[in-house]
């Protein structure tokens, strides 16, 4: 999962719906695994497959016109349950970037912790991108993490996006938070000593 991040250019898979919650990304009945593998095949399960397990033609993941490692979604993506399985499902399916105008907090962290880059863009950028993809399914987007720029390669609309410098460093170097925290155990122990009066 620790795939180093730099510049990604890809066509997109559009899902122009708001408030897509993590129960839709991966329904609860698929959370029973005790490892991180195999969630990709159940990504958006109940929108993607019918009761018999046959692909639902209208759903975008089943439409051969669309492909790529960038998911483009409506606002408030990943609301609801904290399940990191949602991020494992996105990563397992092959997504490396999610573009939206607004992300739910916990899910956004979960994406970052799984080396998926959540890119927050303006409503206008998102609308134009949806329109361009609708008109031409091969529309590509360039995501440049070092320079924090996202570019719609059809309209050439380009925007700066925000990311915590620490997280950017982690993504570009394949590091995670545990590496950092383990290196800082002495500071944690110092804090514990200073705050021992607070202990139960």
């Amino acid at each position: 999962m620790k795939q180093k991040f730099d510049i990604i250019i890809s066509s997109c898979i559009p899902l122009p719906l708001d408030n897509v919650d993590t129960d839709q990304i991966i329904p609860a009945r698929f959370l029973k695994s005790t490892d991180k593998n195999g969630f990709g095949q159940n990504l958006f399960r109940d929108w993607r497959f019918d009761k018999e397990g046959n692909p639902i033609k209208d759903f975008v993941l089943n439409n051969p016109l669309y492909s790529g490692c960038i998911l483009v979604v409506g606002k408030n993506f990943g609301s609801g349950s904290s399940r990191e399985h949602a991020a494992w499902a996105l990563a397992g399916y092959g997504f490396r970037v999610v573009i939206s105008s607004f992300f739910a907090d916990i899910h956004r962290n979960n994406e970052l912790n799984n080396f998926i880059l959540p890119v927050t863009v303006s409503e206008n950028f998102l609308e134009t991108l949806f329109k361009d993809i609708r008109e031409d399914s091969r529309t590509q987007v360039r995501v440049d993490l070092p320079n924090q720029r996202v570019t719609n390669m059809k309209s050439l609309q380009s925007e700066h996006f925000e990311i915590d410098p620490y997280k950017k460093h982690c993504l570009m170097n394949g590091l995670d938070d545990i590496d950092f925290l383990l290196q800082n155990k002495d500071k944690t122990e110092q804090w514990e000593k200073m705050n021992s009066s607070m202990e139960e």
Partner: peptide
């Protein structure tokens, strides 16, 4: 929190 963060707390209490 997510599961990666659960692992962080297990490993470091932070």
């Amino acid at each position: 929190i997510g599961t990666s963060e659960v692992e962080m707390v297990m490993a470091s209490q932070c």
